[in-house]
Design a protein around this nucleic acid. Structure first.
Lengths: 326, 326
DNA sequence: TATCATGGTGAAAGCGATTTCAACGACGGG
DNA sequence: CCCGTCGTTGAAATCGCTTTCACCATGATA
């Protein structure tokens, strides 16, 4: 492995000069030329490990996600990766598979170890999370949840759900049911359900508490919840879900129990999943700019790191949403 | 930041002793006890950067994927992450967004930089790729393509496509069309088309070359190809696709042109996508263990790295497949 | 002429671990 | 009583880079 010293010797300068050349310090034109030449000749690349040890910066960003194999999360991740690549950083990905404790674990690991900053695609925010985030030694940005005092990029789930509920209340004949997710997930659990209920109520068609079920983000959980629901309350005619994925499951249940029919008339979701859009002709759902949220969060983080002057730049950013097919 | 020296002083030993304690070298019981205590007291964690500089190993694995926000790839990634986490490694993720040159770029970056090994979820394998892989300074495992002389974990796309073609030939009345992907992708492009054609031929129902179109992995490209196809050849009654995602697009096109109908009778794909399965009742498709391929590839790589005795362990592994809904 | 910035430069001091190496005390055998 | 092991130990040398610091020309300024 050719090292800086070798380049320096070949160019007839000190390694300090080479380092300065590489990092844009004082260097005369002719030495710069000689160094450049020597580097090309030897194919030298600097050891990022030595550099990291010395400077304390690794150009690595830790990204913690709840489940990489989900449409929304993988889109967010794509957005994050896009910005990181463009700005000379790399992504250290940690997939917690929906285990909140692994989330804390990684938060710890990343802090003590080699990252310059963290992007946390958040689900549940417990007090432990809050503490971990607060005491984080490197800048951190959350995606998907709004947490007081932390930098977040999120969508207004309450408002979106409210609008969806209000819009649907008028268009649906018969009873509406709701399949939600754990309320520990403030955004997808609590806010969406509350917003949806409020929207229905505002339109004079309040949600029957007996028609609320709980799923766990998966297609299958949506299916099972819907089957139970349809068994318990055969007169339900529309099932609103907290995610498009669960809506797909619910739709399958409806198809099985009631026979095939137009999806658009039967379920709603959140996320505007491409498959669902194509295969059902478009159920009522909320479009979120997932990729954008990854992009924005990452830009915010890197601005803070690269010291973009004008303060840290870490702040809270609420992105817009769009009702689809209502 | 508390460093090893601090711990050593507190425990009244040399830092060499602390290092040995941490790495399992000679150490007496009482000193071990004192060191352990000192570590707990100070909350010491060792700097992975210093360690990396000294040992040359970063415990980082570079993972290069063509498109993280795709069902198959994100599942593979989940499998990779699972094993890495379990075995004390971390994942450096690079998403090339289907740009082959970025693939080479990252291959380069990872080699010169800080990874101990590489997992490449491969699409196109050009000569440049072959050269890059061959001259790779760290162990590398490919997923998804079979390349002579490199360690690969892959599925037998030819065989799977053959079986699918043969099975469908009998069950479909009328003309069958095919929407493939670029043949530069040996596995998904060339092998699937060739296998499918051979399967149809074997069953005495050869594919009309005029009914072959090209998509680009996306749902939308499947849709557009199918629309064109149906405009050009209105008598097509079944569209086989190289991926489930494109099949979803084709199905939408069929629904639009022919009215809604049972998906199972109209399109086939590869990948056994969960949404497609739920929303169509299951089109004919091939189930691949994507997660498994990630797991197997990563285990293979780490075995080679951790020197698991008995040679490098890097080899070629062909995983099975399963025909669905035929 | 004396004085000062100013642009350049290399020697050397780290960054925080791991790992050799020489040495040491105790102990059993000859 | 001497010597070779054996189990332990700490001093010190790296790993490859960045960055301070002292210093040197050189040309401008007083």
């Amino acid at each position: 492995m050719v090292k800086m010293k070798d380049v320096a010797e070949l160019a007839g300068v000190s390694s300090a000069a080479v380092s300065r050349y590489l990092n844009g310090g004082y260097i005369s034109a002719d030495k710069a030329e000689r160094i450049k030449h020597a580097i090309e000749l030897t194919g030298y690349v600097r050891s990022s490990q030595a550099r990291a040890l010395r400077t304390g910066s690794t150009k690595l960003i830790g990204v913690i996600v709840p489940k990489i194999n989900s449409e929304s999360v993988s889109r967010i991740t794509a957005g994050i990766g896009q910005v990181l690549g463009r700005r000379g950083y790399q992504m250290l990905l940690a997939n917690t598979d929906n285990a909140a404790d692994r989330e804390l674990e990684y938060l710890d690991l990343f802090q003590n170890h080699p990252v310059d900053g963290i992007v946390l695609v958040a689900t549940m925010i417990t007090d432990e999370h809050r503490r971990a985030i607060e005491s984080c030694r490197v800048p951190i940005v959350l995606i998907g949840q709004h947490v007081e005092g932390a930098a977040c990029v999120y969508h207004d789930d309450y408002e979106a759900a409210f609008e969806l509920g209000r819009a649907l209340a008028g268009r649906v004949d018969g009873k509406i049911a709701y399949i939600g997710v754990t309320e520990e997930d403030r955004a997808a659990g609590y806010d969406r359900r509350r917003g949806f209920e409020a929207g229905l109520r505002a339109a004079g068609n309040p949600l029957d508490a007996a028609l609320i079920r709980l799923g766990s983000f998966t297609l299958d959980s949506g299916y099972r919840a819907a089957r139970e629901l349809l068994a318990d309350a055969p007169d339900v005619s529309f099932i609103a879900c907290a995610t498009d994925t669960m809506a797909a499951g619910a739709l399958r249940a409806l198809d099985e129990v009631r026979g095939m029919g137009e999806g658009v008339r039967r379920v709603s979701g959140f996320g505007d999943n491409a498959f669902l859009r194509a295969l059902t002709g478009g159920i009522p759902t909320v479009h979120y700019g997932y990729l954008t949220s990854g992009v924005e969060a990452t830009n915010m983080l890197l601005n803070a790191l690269d010291g973009e002057e004008g303060e840290s730049g870490l702040k809270t950013l609420k992105l817009g949403h769009q009702l689809m097919n209502v």
